[in-house]
Simulated scan of single mutants.
Amino acid sequence: MKILCIIQARMGSERLPGKIMKMILDKPMITYTLDRTMTSKYIDEVVLATTENDCEDPMVEYLEANYYNVFRGDENNVLKRYVDTVNLYNGDIIIRITGDCPFIDPIIIDQVITYFLTNNFEFVRVDVPENFIRGFDVEVFTRQALEKVYDISRNIEGDSPYKEHVTLYMYKHPEEFIVGKFEGSEFYQKDYRLCVDTKEDFELVRLIYEHFKNKYVTSKEIVQFLDEHKEISQINQGIKQKHV
C-alpha cells in the first residue's frame, strides 16, 4: 500500500498573485509546505501538482532544480489533475494538502492518516474551521473514492464545483462514502488563520517564521506564540475565507 501526498499549488492566485513563490527567510513559501510534509512518517511520496500554464514555469523550474516531484495538468479541472497524478505515481491512499498552508504539521498529518486507517474510512478531513485552526487542513481518501468521484464528474457537462474542488462531492454526499471528521483538542479550536490568501495572511506567516527561524517549528509552538502575541494573531483577523 502506497500513501501518496499531492500538494496542489499554482502561481495565479486571485487575491495574492505569485504567493507560492514569495520569500520567507530566503526560501519560497511553497518549500515550507513541501519540506514539512515530507517529514511525515507515513507518507511514501510527495508530489506538487500544478497547471500547464506558462505562468507556473518559474515555480516548476525552481522546484525541479531542487529535486522536488512536480506534475503539470489541467488548470480548471483540478479533480482530473489529481487523477492523472495518482495514475502516474500509483498511490493507494491519497493525502490532499494545498500549497498555501506553510505551517502544515507532519504530526497532525500522521494522526489523520492513523485515524483514517484504523477506522476503515474512505474519506477523512480535518474539521476546519469548526474544530481546528485553518491552515492545518489535511484530507485523506482512497484511490477508489477519487476515481468514483471522477467518473461521476465526467457525466457533468462544462464547469462544475466538483471538478474544481477535489473532495467536494465526497463531503456533500456522505451517504455514498464512509466519511470521518478529525477534530482537534480544545487547544486547536481557536479563531486563528494560518493559510495564505492575502497580503495580511502572508505577513502573519512571515513574522512567525522570522521569530522562530525554524522551518520545522511545531503547530503547538505556533499556537502558543499566537496566544501570547495577540497583536500578531489579529493581523489577518478580518480576512474572510472564499466560499466554495
Score class of each variant (00 low, 15 high):
residue 87 N to V: 00
residue 216 Y to F: 15
residue 223 V to K: 05
residue 167 T to D: 14
residue 237 Q to R: 13
residue 132 F to I: 04
residue 150 Y to N: 10
residue 47 V to Y: 00
residue 60 V to E: 04
residue 108 I to G: 04
residue 152 I to E: 05
residue 75 E to F: 10
residue 199 K to L: 12
residue 153 S to Q: 08
residue 74 D to G: 02
residue 121 F to Q: 01
residue 160 S to M: 00
residue 241 Q to P: 01
residue 229 H to G: 10
residue 208 I to M: 05
residue 162 Y to K: 03
residue 241 Q to F: 09
residue 164 E to H: 15
residue 119 N to M: 01
residue 230 K to C: 00
residue 210 E to H: 06
residue 37 T to C: 13
residue 186 E to D: 15
residue 178 I to Y: 13
residue 119 N to P: 10
residue 2 K to I: 05
residue 188 Y to K: 02
residue 135 G to F: 13
residue 79 L to S: 09
residue 196 V to K: 06
residue 44 D to V: 07
residue 14 E to I: 14
residue 185 S to G: 06
residue 122 E to K: 03
residue 224 Q to W: 06
residue 150 Y to P: 08
residue 83 V to K: 11
residue 225 F to R: 08
residue 199 K to T: 08
residue 211 H to A: 02
residue 16 L to C: 02
residue 139 E to H: 09
residue 235 I to N: 03
residue 199 K to N: 11
residue 172 K to P: 00
residue 23 M to E: 15
residue 133 I to A: 02
residue 19 K to R: 15
residue 205 V to T: 13
residue 70 V to L: 06
residue 215 K to N: 08
residue 173 H to E: 13
residue 213 K to I: 07
residue 211 H to L: 02
residue 82 Y to M: 14
residue 31 T to H: 10
residue 163 K to S: 11
residue 178 I to E: 14
residue 103 F to I: 14
residue 24 I to G: 13
residue 217 V to E: 03
residue 200 E to G: 03
residue 21 M to P: 02
residue 116 F to V: 04
residue 44 D to E: 09
residue 115 Y to A: 04
residue 1 M to D: 15
residue 3 I to F: 03
residue 121 F to N: 04
residue 123 F to E: 10
residue 34 L to W: 05
residue 169 Y to R: 00
residue 63 L to V: 04
residue 44 D to T: 06
residue 198 T to M: 07
residue 94 I to R: 02
residue 126 V to S: 12
residue 117 L to F: 03
residue 39 T to Q: 13
residue 78 V to W: 08
residue 200 E to I: 01
residue 115 Y to M: 02
residue 66 N to L: 04
residue 72 R to C: 14
residue 220 K to Q: 14
residue 91 G to T: 02
residue 182 F to N: 03
residue 187 F to P: 00
residue 15 R to M: 10
residue 238 G to T: 08
residue 223 V to R: 07
residue 73 G to R: 07
residue 173 H to V: 09
residue 161 P to M: 11
residue 24 I to T: 10
residue 97 I to E: 12
residue 60 V to T: 10
residue 72 R to T: 14
residue 149 V to M: 01
residue 143 R to I: 08
residue 111 Q to H: 09
residue 207 L to S: 09
residue 205 V to Y: 03
residue 180 G to A: 07
residue 122 E to T: 03
residue 48 L to V: 15
residue 112 V to C: 01
residue 79 L to N: 06
residue 76 N to A: 10
residue 21 M to C: 08
residue 221 E to Q: 15
residue 238 G to K: 06
residue 218 T to S: 15
residue 42 Y to N: 06
residue 56 E to A: 12
residue 17 P to V: 11
residue 212 F to I: 07
residue 168 L to H: 11
residue 115 Y to D: 03
residue 95 I to K: 10
residue 61 E to L: 11
residue 166 V to H: 03
residue 228 E to S: 09
residue 120 N to Q: 10
residue 42 Y to A: 02
residue 163 K to E: 14
residue 12 G to E: 15
residue 238 G to V: 00
residue 145 A to L: 01
residue 67 Y to A: 12
residue 223 V to H: 06
residue 36 R to D: 12
residue 194 L to C: 07
residue 89 Y to G: 12
residue 167 T to E: 12
residue 202 F to W: 04
residue 106 P to V: 04
residue 58 P to A: 12
residue 129 P to I: 09
residue 78 V to T: 12
